[in-house]
Amino acid sequence: MFTSADLTAFFLTLQLAFITTLILLILGTPLAWYLARSRWRYKFILEALVALPLVLPPTVLGFYLLLLLGNNGPLGYLMQSIGAEPLAFSFTGLVIGSVFYSIPFVVQPLQDAFNNIGKRPMEAAATLGASPFDRFISVALPLARQGFLTAIVLGFAHTLGEFGVVLMIGGNIPGETKVLSIAIYEHVEALEYANAHLLSASLVLLSFLMLIAVYSINGRFKVVRL
């Protein structure tokens, strides 16, 4: 069965994934909307930046975050000077790292969903007296619901499996930064294959179930939508 240390890692991971997804939804929705609607010539630069975590080794991302957040980094220095805890090797630091790490998994499905709505429903809403914010809430968000579902699940599932970034900026503090993937790695190092198995299998099952949910629900929506 799960050891209590494993359970702590498990819940810490869920907590991290939940908070990360929430922050990404709050920040990613306006960003995705901007990317879908903007006619700025150099928009592709932003799009490339958003996609960067897809191709970078997580250790590279983690390394630069460490430089940024560590005690000698600009952000770490700032935190120190206002008397706050340093961000590296803390849960908050992990959240920041995960947000960067999972950006494309949230922003890209949202951007696609907003693109697919097209201009027309928004124009129709405008002629019916809806202000830009009103029509974003009453038309764009509900029409992009498939995109939100995909974004939430992919963002959550991707954060669950995070390893490289955590290794660089999180370390291995139980209850603070020791997430599932680290725990599994530790078990393997210690040749505790049964424990590693249990955690790995839970992660496979959880991720699989979430993806099944997305694909089944999105599939059904497609049948209804024209």
């Binding site: 429903p121 124009e123 129709a124 405008a126 002629t127 029509r135 038309v139 509900p142 029409l143």
Partner: peptide
Amino acid sequence: LPPHQRSIGYVFQEASLFDH
């Protein structure tokens, strides 16, 4: 005046109803 402040009704070539 932006469209939402004009007292108009607009019927597009394709109905453009809200699918949701």
